[in-house]
Design a protein around this nucleic acid. Structure first.
Length: 297
DNA sequence: ATTACAGCGGTAAAGGGCGG
DNA sequence: CCGCCCTTTACCGCTGTAAT
């Protein structure tokens, strides 16, 4: 018989995502020995070795990578079919707000996943400053919102997707830090919480600075930093490889972590709320299983 | 009752890290 | 280098369940 077993494919995906069978076992709610057995059978069916085992975990072989790509699609389709038959298929328009600090590659991954799982869904996305996104969410102009917050801030009902450090960033060609000179800053406008945070930290550190460049969005900050116009306070995953570096200098105070959070869907209609919850689940899954960061270092 | 099979727990084998 | 500990995967025998 041709074809693959869904359970075994799920185990393959879980093993690769978790990095080892032992780590994948609790995810799959199975014992390690059962996972090992499932993968042995999957490889038997595939007629090829799919995972390179070692004492430090598992890594997919070339054949494993190929099957993995199929497996993710098959499982997404299977999940979509399940949701369809259980009346939670999503169609119509959903308004999604996303902070501009979100890495573009991650956004692509998310939108691809949503398109795959909900082909009939029409998305209206708003990408901008976290404060703007949050304000739009509060006046119910958005159904779902992904915002970035300084980690110390309470997050209420929001679901934390990821935590990462804030860094001081500059161009590798022009680090801009010299003794007794005010640090030139590249910032978003005063309304942005990172703008306020950066200045508060520098004030508390008794470090002089001058706001050299104000940009209206994150792409503008990235451009200004890469152009050597200023030092920015930015989340690590927004660093652009080769044109931005994280600075470690005694003149610069340490910065807290930030978290990306998914604000829960708000809807007065119960049926709509259930659908949005299903969508929120897919968004959270997509982002928590997105490829690991390669831009930060 | 018999058969097939998924899953579990226990355990063996082996690599990596660490201290002496 | 050696011994110890931790963690990993693989294997074995057992049990529960479903189909016939």
């Amino acid at each position: 018989m041709q074809g693959f077993d869904l359970d075994q494919l799920r185990t393959l995906v879980a093993a690769v995502d978790a990095g080892s069978l032992s780590a994948a076992a609790p995810v799959r709610l199975l014992s390690q020995s059962t996972l090992s057995e499932q993968l042995r059978k999957l490889e038997e069916r595939a007629g090829q070795t799919l995972l390179q085992r070692s004492k430090t975990g598992v890594v997919p072989t070339a054949a494993g990578e190929r099957l993995l790509a199929h497996a993710r699609q098959i499982l997404a389709l299977s999940d979509a079919a399940w949701r369809d038959l259980h009346g939670v298929s999503l169609e119509g328009e959903v308004r999604l707000g996303i902070t501009g600090y979100f890495r573009a590659s991650e956004l692509i991954h998310l939108l691809a996943r949503l398109g795959q799982q909900y082909p009939r869904l029409r998305l209206r996305t708003q990408i901008g400053k976290s404060d703007d996104i949050e304000a739009a969410y509060n006046r119910q102009a958005l159904d779902l919102a992904i915002v970035m917050r300084v980690a110390e801030r309470p997050i209420g009902e929001a679901r934390v997707l990821r935590r990462e450090p804030l860094v001081w960033a500059a161009s590798p060609k022009n680090m801009l830090i010299s003794a007794n000179e005010p640090i030139p800053l590249a910032l978003l406008p005063e309304s942005c919480s990172l703008h306020r945070l950066a200045r508060m930290q520098l004030d508390a550190h008794r470090q002089s600075y001058v706001v050299n460049h104000v940009a209206s969005d994150v792409a503008g900050i990235q451009a200004a930093v890469a152009a050597g116009l200023g030092v920015a306070c930015i989340n690590a995953s927004s660093l652009i490889r080769d044109s931005m570096v994280a600075l470690a200098d005694p003149a610069l105070p340490p910065l807290p972590d930030v978290t990306f959070a998914l604000l829960p869907p708000v809807s007065s209609k119960a049926q709509q709320a259930e659908r949005l919850n299903a969508l929120a689940e897919v968004v959270a899954q997509a982002l928590m299983s997105s490829p690991p960061s390669t831009t930060a270092s």
